[in-house]
Design a protein around this nucleic acid. Structure first.
Lengths: 100, 100
DNA sequence: CCTATATTTCTAGTAAGATAGAAATATTAG
DNA sequence: CTAATATTTCTATCTTACTAGAAATATAGG
């Protein structure tokens, strides 16, 4: 069910550490950032960071690609946009307005 | 810190029951819906529902106003929009693009 | 092969959240 | 005041999530 998928994504973004990770990647843009970069930026222990990254991966908010020893994380803007759009979907359909 | 405020809101929306409550209110529009309406719609026990509503209230995603015995819940669209906007803020500033 | 770098997995302790029954409170109507 | 309706609070149980140290794996360079 779509509602559950959206809730899962929002829940992942609802953790302060993951929100920081994700925003760091959004700022980084399409080139993304390596796990090591994120760790240096946020000063989170590697095991903790890895755990959070895997959760963001699981719900599709980020993807990864390897370049040598370095794993790059890339934000998935379409997934973010879909998630955001869902919150506004059918806004005020039981009323007569176009937007809140 | 703003990041924490946003994370808290997203975390509240990240629970399936609260997401349903919130979306029901968004659909209802500016007139909102009563706690009883929500309960009838979602078939959640009253104590559970009350707990979830208080969490949405706490982070400002909804407000309430009483009319006799009935408590109406109203979605706070500006808070939602601010939350959404934060996720896109400073997108790609470390790159050269305008939007993902 | 050996070493260094990059990241994940294992493991475990601790804290927080979800759920709901039952009782309590609040409001209105008669 | 009494009864009915609307909603919250209390209490408890159960599950899930966060955190991080230590060990393991993966990749590349010499």
């Amino acid at each position: 069910m779509k509602e559950e998928i959206i809730a899962n994504r929002l829940a992942e973004l609802g953790n302060i550490t993951r929100l920081r990770i994700f925003r760091y990647l959004v700022k980084a843009g399409h080139k993304g950032a390596s796990v090591g970069d994120i760790q240096a930026e946020l000063a989170v222990p590697n095991s903790t960071l890895s755990h959070h990254i895997s959760k963001l991966l699981r719900v599709g908010l980020i993807k990864q690609h390897r370049d040598g020893r370095t794993l790059y994380c890339l934000p998935q803007y379409e997934i973010l946009d879909e998630t955001i759009a869902f919150l506004r979907e059918e806004c005020c359909i039981n009323e007569n307005c176009q937007k809140g």
